[in-house]
């Protein structure tokens, strides 16, 4: 179970202006700006749930993921993941979670994928029988047979993502954070990845938290959506709830009477962003 209560996080960013004069000034006096990445975020996610965590860029998605995975310490508020405070017992905590950063690779570029996996076995101290069992299952489900002997640099993006996901699951975490797992993938790979995530959730009851800009991911995978904007939770409910919310704002010129049910998810999200002024 994951609970976040009244979590706030702000960053201090040095303000910079162009020009020689400004640069000289900055040497003596740094102007600092506070950016509120998260202000009073609360939610609870039960075991085995699959949740879509969405919002425009800089809404606070990755800050949330970072807090939940122990990378960041929040300014205030409390956060428990299966009873652990992520940033307090970080090493203990990260043993139990898996994280996929869609845009960054955790595989070694120049050696066969299987070598990266073998290193992860040592990093997570996975016992040999367990490792072999998990590897076999993941190879099967993600169709990695031919890929394991190939150096990462020779894989296509889709193939690599399948390997990345397997790499994050070798230690059988109960919670999986997926940060834009389908970004840049072709149609076939996207479907394969979605299919796998769905099975993982059904068969292993793994809790999945998914951030994405791809609304089809959300439609295909999750019942529940948490919409975040400007550091606040704006909506926590089902896709139907989102449609309902849009229909409340009929004044939007882009929506005509009666066509709310015809709107694609992308359009609904765009409407919500517009209406809540968070785009």
């Amino acid at each position: 179970m994951i609970t976040m209560e009244h979590v706030c996080k702000s960053y201090r960013v040095a303000k910079r202006n162009a020009g020689m004069k400004e640069a000289c000034k900055a040497l003596f006096h740094r102007q600092v700006e506070s950016i509120h990445a998260l202000s009073d975020v609360s939610f609870t996610i039960g075991d085995g749930e699959m949740v879509g965590y969405i919002g425009p860029n800089r809404a606070g998605k990755s800050s949330t993921i970072k807090i939940l995975s122990g990378i960041l310490t929040p300014d205030s508020g409390s956060c428990y993941v299966d009873g652990r405070i992520p940033w307090k017992n970080r090493i203990e905590h990260v043993r139990q979670i898996g994280v996929v950063f869609g845009q960054r690779s955790q595989l070694w570029w120049d050696v066969p994928v299987i070598d990266s996996f073998a290193l992860l076995k040592d990093i997570y101290s996975i016992s040999t029988p367990q490792y072999e069992h998990n590897l076999e299952e993941l190879t099967d489900l993600l169709h990695l047979q031919e890929l394991l002997k190939t150096p990462t640099r020779q894989l296509s993006l889709g193939q690599r993502m399948r390997c990345e996901i397997a790499a994050s699951l070798l230690h059988q975490p109960n919670i999986l954070f997926l940060d834009e797992p389908t970004i840049g993938l072709d149609a076939v790979s996207k479907l394969a990845v979605r299919d796998f995530i769905l099975r993982l959730n059904q068969e292993h009851k793994t809790t999945v938290i998914l951030t994405t800009h791809d609304m089809q991911d959300i439609e295909a995978l999750t019942q529940r959506v948490i919409l975040i904007g400007k550091g606040r939770v704006l909506l926590d409910g089902t896709l139907a709830d989102m449609r309902k919310k849009v229909s409340l704002y009929k004044s939007d010129s882009n929506i005509r009477e009666g066509n709310i049910n015809d709107l694609s998810l992308d359009e609904i999200i765009a409407c919500l962003y517009r209406q809540m002024h968070i785009a």
């Binding site: 090493i91 960054r104 990093i123 997570y124």
Partner: peptide
């Protein structure tokens, strides 16, 4: 700069060793 340190922090080993 490339954000690789986040990956190091989500692994159950000491950052120095990694």
């Amino acid at each position: 700069r490339e954000g690789q340190f986040d990956r190091i922090l989500v692994r159950p080993q000491s950052p120095i060793l990694q």
